[in-house]
Design a protein around this nucleic acid. Structure first.
Lengths: 125, 125, 125, 125
DNA sequence: GTGGTCTAGACCACA
DNA sequence: GTGGTCTAGACCACA
């Protein structure tokens, strides 16, 4: 469901939050779907429960999930959270454009890159 | 010439290296132009000289500048460095596309964003 | 009669006790009225019977209800319990005032809020 | 500066965040004022640095402070964060009014309580 | 079993 | 020195 790159400089808890946000925005996880428990998630990923706990706490603070003590964590149906996330993604994309532009890349070049990358599944590490 | 966002999570030395790379790729700084000394750069930015030193060391390792003992640091005329930098910028842009896609943004939406952002806003946040 | 917010951080048994106390202080439930059985309450709310049991035990310890073995639970006519509950409500209200004050809200602003909220909205979030 | 009630059911990190928010909204701490370091705060309160770290992380996520790695944490000048906090305080106050009302307390009684509590410094534990 | 809080302590990047 | 991340593990309330 979610894969972690343990060598990455991106914190594990960020990779987890990004993973669930992605699964939710893509519609793979729907409102009120249950997430794995903190403990099972931790053991299946081979990491410390505290790290998963931190990721879940962030997701809850951001309104992406809600937690019911003693029951588990669930995908929230808060649309405003989704909207905020999409806005953040747009903002990141814009900053990437500005950065590329300031490095001397041209509009046509970026357009081609955009289409090829979006259609093909070029993976970057 | 180079502005630093002290509150940003991006390390200051990264902001400095990115700044010089940008000035070079845009042609504002040309080969053999002299960079400010470590000390003057540090005092004008109000930061630790060690931080500027680290940025210059990275730029030199990447072939963007070269140092002459007792004289200072200068913009290099190494084209391969420029090419490598553009490739890195492309790679960053691709990753931003993948991220935006996985957050549910569509190709047309991204195209519009690309054109508007490239033409319009010179604002950096 | 009593509604539960399953997403709330307030424990379910607290929501149940608060609900019955409210119904009693408002006079909707009168002394010697019968409460639903633990099992029917649990099944109609879709929660664990242990949770209802805990709520009833707290209400009984506080003198709000009394239990008759084999017969069920009933609203008590103990006035001292009511008085204690009102005192607790007052204390909570005072703490809310202190908190609001320490966050920089002024007396006039709070007065207006008090009047509007008391008269107007019956909405619970 | 900030006092902790170790016996309280309110998490220590919440007491810390509330303390700094209070000091900021009251104007005692001003934008760009430096907070104690995580370590010094922890040792002076006699608690684990992780707990302070958690409080600071929450304050930063809420825009109340900003952290500069290697330098320290500082009061933010983000007005929107302040506005959000005041709104939250208002919302809490409203809920307290609704609760008091549903427990049978009258408007005049609450008004008197409000004035007395606001003026006097009646402390409740 | 499930999430939430906290301690103890290690290691890292950054300034 | 300063904040940030992570592990290991304990204890608690709740269901």
């Amino acid at each position: 469901m979610i894969t972690i790159d343990y060598k990455s400089r991106v914190p594990i808890y960020d990779q987890i939050t990004a993973g669930f946000i992605r699964l939710k925005t893509l519609g793979i996880l729907k409102p009120h779907d249950k997430l794995p428990s903190v403990r099972s998630m931790a053991s299946s990923l081979g990491i410390n429960p505290n790290t998963v706990q931190k990721a879940y706490a962030i997701l809850e603070a951001d309104g992406v999930i809600y937690s019911v003590s003693g029951k588990g964590s669930f995908i929230s149906d808060d649309d405003s959270a989704d909207a905020a996330i999409k806005e953040a993604a747009k903002s990141d994309f814009k900053m990437a454009i500005e950065a590329a532009k300031s490095m001397g890349l041209g509009l046509e070049e970026l357009k081609t890159l955009l289409e090829n990358t979006f259609k093909g599944g070029d993976k970057n590490d």
